[in-house]
Simulated assay, not measured.
Amino acid sequence: MVIHTQKETLVKALSFRNKNEKIGFVPTMGALHKGHISLVAKALEENTLVVVSIFVNPTQFNNSADLEKYPRTPEDDISLLKELNNDIIIYLPEISDLYEGSVLAKSYNYGGLENEMEGKHRSGHFDGVGTILDKFFRIVNPDTAYFGEKDFQQLQIVKKLTAIEKLPVKIIGCPILREPNGLAMSSRNKRLSPKQFDEATLIYKTLEEVQAKFRTTSIADLNALVAERFLQNPHLELEYFEIANEKTLKTAKRKNKSSKYRAFIAAFAGNIRLIDNMPLN
C-alpha cells in the first residue's frame, strides 16, 4: 500500500496501535539498494506492520546541487518493496504535506554529537535530520526504527533525538552491507562511473588497514598513513579521516584501553561524496 499524506499514515498506524500490534519503521531517501532492504527485512522479522518512508529531505542538505542530483527512483523503489512483502506500508509524502509551507529545520542540541565529523563539514545537516525524523516518529508512532551503521554518527544523533523529544521508539542499528569490492552500499553509488566505483574501494581498503594496525600503531601515525594512501590516488579526494570515541564521537588523540574507537572517512569521487566507517577495537 502506497500512502502520500500524514493523515492516511496516522490513520493506518493508529488502527494497528489499537490492536496492540508492533510497528516497525524504516526511514529512507529512496534509490533503494540491498542495504535498505536488509533494514526492511529485519523490521519485517520483528514487527507486525512495517512502514517505509521514501522522502528526499531538503532541510538536511547544505548543498543545493547535491539535493538536485540525489538519485530518485520511486517506481523502482515501490516495486522492490512490494516484491519483498506486499503488506509493507510505503509512505511517499510531498514536501508541502510534511513542512506545511515552511521548509525550515528546527535547531537541536545533541550534546556535542552534532559538532563532530559530518557536523563540521555539513552545516545544519543534523538539524534537518532531527526535524524530519521527529515529524516521522510522531506520524508513524513506531515501536522500533531501523538505521544502517554506515551513517554511524547519524545513528547516535537519532538515539539522542528520541531522548531529547521523549519519543517512545527504540532505535536499532544494523550492520553495513558492502559491494563485492568492499564499497559501502549507498544510494550515491548509482552516480559513480564504473571507473569511480572501482577506485572507491580505496576507502574500504584503507579502513581495513587502519583496523589491522590499530593495536600496534599510534593514532598520529595512522592519520599520516591514511593521508598518504589518498595522496597516492588522484581519483579520490579525502575530505576527512578521523578516529573517534564511539560514544562521544570526539576525535581521539591517543588511545584509552577502556574506550571503544571507530575510524571514519569522507571522500569525494569527482563531485560525489562518499562516507564509511569501521570499528577498531
Rank of each mutant, 00 (worst) to 15 (best):
T216N: 14
E179P: 06
A65I: 15
F136I: 04
K42E: 14
P180M: 02
F55W: 03
K7V: 11
T251H: 11
L249S: 05
N47H: 11
L80H: 02
K213Q: 14
L32I: 10
D127E: 11
M1A: 11
R72P: 04
L98F: 13
I157M: 08
S96W: 10
K260T: 14
F126H: 03
L177F: 13
V11H: 12
N18H: 12
S96H: 12
A200K: 03
F197I: 01
D276Q: 06
S193A: 02
V26R: 05
G111Q: 10
I78H: 04
P194E: 04
V2C: 08
V158L: 10
I95H: 06
L39I: 11
E94Y: 13
K69E: 13
I272C: 09
S38N: 11
K255G: 06
A163W: 13
H235Y: 14
I90M: 00
F230A: 04
A244P: 07
K195L: 15
P93S: 08
S187M: 07
F152S: 01
A244T: 13
Q211G: 07
K12V: 14
E208M: 11
P279M: 12
R178Q: 09
T28V: 00
A224N: 14
N63V: 08
K255N: 09
P234K: 08
L161R: 09
L44Y: 12
V52N: 01
Y240N: 11
N189S: 09
A13M: 14
F152A: 00
L67I: 04
D77N: 00
V103K: 01
N18K: 15
E114M: 09
I54G: 02
L236I: 06
N57D: 05
D198C: 09
D198R: 15
Y240T: 06
E149W: 12
Q154R: 04
Q156W: 02
Y110P: 03
G24S: 10
L202Y: 02
E46L: 14
R229G: 03
P279D: 10
A163G: 11
E228G: 00
Q211P: 00
E8G: 02
G128S: 03
L98C: 09
A224F: 08
R254C: 11
G128E: 03
A41D: 15
I23N: 05
L222E: 08
Y146H: 05
H4Y: 15
G124N: 01
S187L: 05
N86L: 14
K247R: 14
L98K: 06
I243H: 06
K82E: 13
M1Q: 12
A244F: 03
L167V: 12
